[in-house]
Amino acid sequence: MYNAGKVIVFIVVLIVFFTIPMWLNFGRVEAIPQPELPKDKAKCIESKEYMRAYHMKLLDDWRKQAIRENKHVYVAKDGEKYFINLQKTCMKCHNNKEKFCDSCHNFVVTHPDCWSCHIAPEVAEKWQ
């Protein structure tokens, strides 16, 4: 092998680069946070699978309907009707933003911009 020293350094750098997730987690990996679900309610407005994957789309549609189309009633797939309102409908049950919303959002690093207009219940309480 020619230029053995340089080649070995190159291989080491490459391996370190491609195993970076391992090094970044090394010795500091934290347990996966569990979002706190409302205890007294058995189901959300749609199925659990749908809500877990599509809640942001649902909320985005709600926003468009409530603000731009003046529609305030959402008909769920099972026919039940809900008032389109984040703070009064969603957060009536999911009443803790930190333990419900933030625990997952911080875990997967998303930047929802709900809270630039809406106020979380616990923040509202502080101001009252």
């Binding site: 970076i20 997730p21 970044l24 987690n25 934290e30 942001m56 909320l59 985005d60 997967v108 690093v109």
Partner: peptide, 27 residues
């Protein structure tokens, strides 16, 4: 890497934030 690390290093969070800073096209 945001999906492969926990906690996510702030550099990667920053990169992700910069990449998605245009909020004009919905959620």
């Amino acid at each position: 890497l945001r999906l492969f690390t926990n906690p996510v290093p702030s550099v990667i969070q920053f990169l992700d934030y910069m990449d998605s800073f245009i909020h004009s096209f919905g959620v």
